[in-house]
Computed example of a mutant assay.
Amino acid sequence: MLNGSMVALITPMTGSGEVDYASLEKLVEFHIDRGTDAIVSVGTTGESATLSLAEHLAVVKQTIAFAAGRIPVIAGNGGNATAKVIELTQALGQLDVAAMLCVTPYYNKPTQQGLIAHYRAVADSTDIPQILYNVPGRTGVDMLPETVAELALHSKIIGVKEATGDLSRSSRLRQLCPADFLLYSGDDATACEFLLLGGNGVISVANNLVPAEFKAMCDAALAGNATLAHRLDAPLTGLYSELFCEANPIPVKWAVHRMGLINNNHIRLPLTELSDTYHGQLLQAMNKARIEVN
């Protein structure tokens, strides 16, 4: 089972905008060394929307190679055209991925029946476990708990990443879905409570910066130790808000660069580098979390 503290890993790039594989290897080692439970490669935080198909596959392939079996790698396979998602899914299925994370089709605004048909078609096209991903704030469509419950009956659909920040969703999903269906938080600010309410893990943006600390919080929450989990979570709360002062992954990529973990802060258009206005407050949140910066 894929449980615990998972990182929605950034995709480092050179100054000219190419993927920086030397920095990628460094990031993978950073997370293995600090106990992260799984890596999500080329999700939203990994700039999936602006990578070509060839780049997408290459980044996932290299991440798996760098991990060398020491940590599971989950590949992002979402998109807004079912046929293209199936094409990507089948290509990723040739790699040694532990599972795939499939965001709801964005911009199209499918109905709940459209979502069911989409995810069933994708799951039917592969033998690799699929994780649903609901983030209506970015996609413009909300996959309802009842829809998730229907999809949870598919043998290849093993879990959902719920990124609404609505904690009542976790209880509703647990009530409706099979006992072994995996519930992941995609909202760092409410992740601790999500786990204490019975969630199985967190796919996190902040984990890019504080993997050991985030892992400790997740472990405490999964063990049901609310007092310890809240104490470990408290220094990280500033990060949870400041890492979204501009669209993800703009702030987190800037912060990881300030930590010296990647060689360049390049991010692909239409996103641009973090505005000077936000540098001070993000640095303050990093200082509260005891993160060393260059």
Rank of each mutant, 00 (worst) to 15 (best):
A123P: 14
Q130D: 13
T126S: 13
Q130N: 13
V141H: 02
P136L: 03
P136N: 05
I128A: 10
T126R: 05
S125H: 07
G140Y: 13
V122A: 07
D127Q: 15
V141I: 10
D142R: 07
V141L: 00
P145H: 07
E146C: 10
D127A: 15
T139I: 00
E146Y: 11
Q130M: 15
D124K: 03
D142F: 12
L151A: 01
L151W: 03
E146S: 13
Y133C: 01
I131S: 04
I128Y: 08
M143S: 08
L132P: 04
A149P: 03
S125K: 02
A123R: 03
P145I: 06
M143D: 07
V141P: 07
E150R: 14
I128W: 08
Q130H: 14
L151T: 04
P145R: 02
D124N: 15
Y133Q: 00
L144S: 01
D142S: 14
D124F: 11
P129C: 06
V122H: 06
R138K: 04
D124A: 13
V122F: 09
A123F: 07
I131M: 12
P136M: 06
A152G: 10
P136S: 07
V148A: 07
N134Y: 10
E146I: 11
I128G: 06
N134K: 02
Q130F: 15
Y133A: 00
G137M: 07
E146D: 15
L132A: 03
Y133V: 01
V122W: 09
T139M: 00
D142E: 15
P129V: 05
V135M: 10
V141W: 00
S125T: 06
Q130V: 15
L151N: 04
D124P: 15
L144M: 12
A149M: 02
Q130E: 15
D124M: 11
S125G: 14
R138M: 06
P136G: 09
G137H: 08
G140E: 13
L132Y: 02
P136I: 02
G140R: 13
I128N: 08
I131G: 06
Y133W: 01
V148K: 05
T126I: 04
P136V: 02
A152N: 05
A123E: 10
G140Q: 12
T139N: 03
V141T: 12
D127L: 13
L144W: 06
P145F: 10
Q130A: 15
L132D: 10
V122K: 01
A121D: 13
T126G: 14
E150I: 00
Y133H: 01
A149W: 01
S125C: 09
L144D: 02
E150A: 11
D142K: 08
V148S: 08
V148E: 04
N134R: 03
P129W: 06
P136E: 04
I128H: 07
L132N: 03
L144I: 04
E146V: 13
P145M: 05
P129S: 08
T139K: 00
P129A: 05
P145G: 11
A121K: 08
I131F: 14
T147N: 13
Y133K: 00
I131L: 14
D127M: 11
L144E: 09
A121S: 15
V135I: 14
T139G: 05
D142C: 14
T126Y: 12
T126C: 12
M143W: 06
N134C: 09
D124C: 11
E150T: 06
G140S: 13
L132M: 01
L151S: 04
D127F: 12
